[in-house]
Design a protein around this nucleic acid. Sequence first.
DNA 1: ATATTAATGCAAGTAGCTTGCATTAATATA
DNA 2: TATATTAATGCAAGCTACTTGCATTAATAT
Lengths: 142, 142
Amino acid sequence: MKTSDITTLLRAKGFRATQGKIALIAALLDSPSPESIETLAGKIKGALDAANVYRSLESFVAAGLVRRIDLGNAKSYYEFAVDRKHHHHIVCTDCGRIEDVKGCSEALDKTALKASTSFSAIQSHSLEFFGLCRPCTKKSVR
Amino acid sequence: MKTSDITTLLRAKGFRATQGKIALIAALLDSPSPESIETLAGKIKGALDAANVYRSLESFVAAGLVRRIDLGNAKSYYEFAVDRKHHHHIVCTDCGRIEDVKGCSEALDKTALKASTSFSAIQSHSLEFFGLCRPCTKKSVR
DNA sequence: ATATTAATGCAAGTAGCTTGCATTAATATA
DNA sequence: TATATTAATGCAAGCTACTTGCATTAATAT
Ligand SMILES: [Mn+2]
Ligand SMILES: [Mn+2]
Ligand SMILES: [Zn+2]
Ligand SMILES: [Zn+2]
């Protein structure tokens, strides 16, 4: 995706195409897996200060450009969402590596709702796996 | 579960049966769904100060007495784990109500691991649903 | 009863995130 | 192209959830 496309995307959602927001979207596009705010801030090298990295990411989530991922470790992670379907992740408990787990059984929400006694609708879910990646498995055997 | 049983349980895991730890376990036993630390601290009325509520809960998790649940909202929730199987939760996005979702398809981990290119094992997963409970659905229609 | 040491209370510190506000820069308008 | 408008920004201060250090206390072992 070129800078001009990012500009178009931002304007389509009502944002101004600022240096900071363009750099942030570019950094997210550059990442194959969800990135921490710290990492994203590093990638954009001061194009936005910390407070505005937070502000911009949340505004992107509200606009549907980006997804916030919760990996159970107190930090928020973000991934680009446009034309990228809902999916899940595996996190290595040793080194932190994150891999996409493509796809999602449609039945999950239905089954959970059917089993529920007090809920009338399920809007979303979060499913994250925790395990050991091959490099870390080798390390621990060594 | 009586106080004497809690004492036995704590000692079996190498803990001393202190007033604070007994009160904390009792509070957890009293809760049908995961509780926030703030709520637990309230329930034990000063039997432990805040720092030791954190310390004790984490030591219980390490000992397998308690599970930490992540509901995507920056806080940790805890639920009693002994003789209570792995399961999931639905959270009401409006009022915060939490309900257990019993059971878990064994296939989840297997499917994810099979699809993965760089992981050799999956140890656990977190699956939480977000939706609207009946009372809140009614409220929003009104 | 006494010794040992896990557990505790208190205070200070940290990480991740939020908010207020004056200034700046992106866009709209002339 | 110049000017007006206001979204976006930088900076500073503040907040919440949580952690850590350490002297004291109380649960258990002897
Ligand atoms: Mn992903
Ligand atoms: Mn539960
Ligand atoms: Zn899914
Ligand atoms: Zn499960």
